[in-house]
Nucleic acid binder design. Structure first.
Lengths: 131, 131
DNA sequence: CTATTTACCTATTGACATAGTAGGCAAATA
DNA sequence: TATTTGCCTACTATGTCAATAGGTAAATAG
């Protein structure tokens, strides 16, 4: 299941996308509108900045804003940044050590096909599709 | 991600499907062939019996066997028994209390569509497809 | 009727993730 | 200089994951 990290991140993105591109939006406002603890959002938003989804600005008039247009954010990108790989099994994650069972594994193609489906789905949807 | 509970359960089912339908297969043999701790498999197999996937028999000549033909087990059924609902968010699980945000939630259709895809996929695949 | 084989049951453990809370420092503006 | 805002470290309670440990009950072979 998708955890609050991923779900809240998407809601923050939607909230920001609905506001003027030029202005920074204080996290306090987002937290109030979304009914989510501001303190908890701080942790989540920090990772979003580190991952290049948002930029932040301190001080009065500061806050966060998107760095790209909503149609340029794939939902899969947001989810993978916040939750880790979409892969249903560890051996299909990018950079995973090769599984010793892979040559004879009867379930590998089941997971691989599902992984492909999931990837295609979440990278075909963009932030702009949620507005 | 699918945990060992679900993955091992499927491997046990495949192992059993490869053996004579009429005979009980001791868990010790399955554990050795699959390279999985027998003690851990006991816990998993117990839930599989409780869920109606297998039957067990004690004593000499005992073990476990399938109760249906491999083509009559949907993979989704096995996964949901062992891992809980396939739903990507709690509000889409069967019997979940209605989410207060559902009327205005901008992400609900995203998750619902993915949920449908996942369900369709894992209920279209059967144990017999993995042999 | 006894020994062996097998399933079945309860309990415990260490490591990790989840979903936060708490308190303070740093930067930018009015 | 005061206020607003982001940013940083640390802590905690709860639960899940992946087992391990040790025993009881049932069935069969001899």
């Amino acid at each position: 299941m998708i955890s609050t990290r991923g779900r809240y991140a998407i809601r923050v993105m939607i909230d920001l996308a609905k506001h003027d591109d030029a202005e920074y939006v204080p996290l306090k406002d987002i937290a109030e509108r979304q009914g989510i603890s501001k303190k908890y959002l701080e942790i989540i938003v920090k990772d979003m900045v580190a991952g290049g989804l948002l930029v932040g600005a301190s001080g009065k008039g500061g806050g966060y804003k998107l760095v790209r247009k909503p149609e340029e954010y794939a939902i899969g990108e947001i989810i993978e940044l916040m939750e880790g790989p979409l892969a249903p099994v560890a051996c299909l994650s990018k950079g995973a050590p090769e599984c010793p069972r892979s040559a004879t594994c009867e379930t590998l193609s089941l997971w691989a096909e599902y992984d492909q489906m999931t990837h295609d789905y979440f990278y075909s949807k963009h932030l702009s599709d949620l507005l």
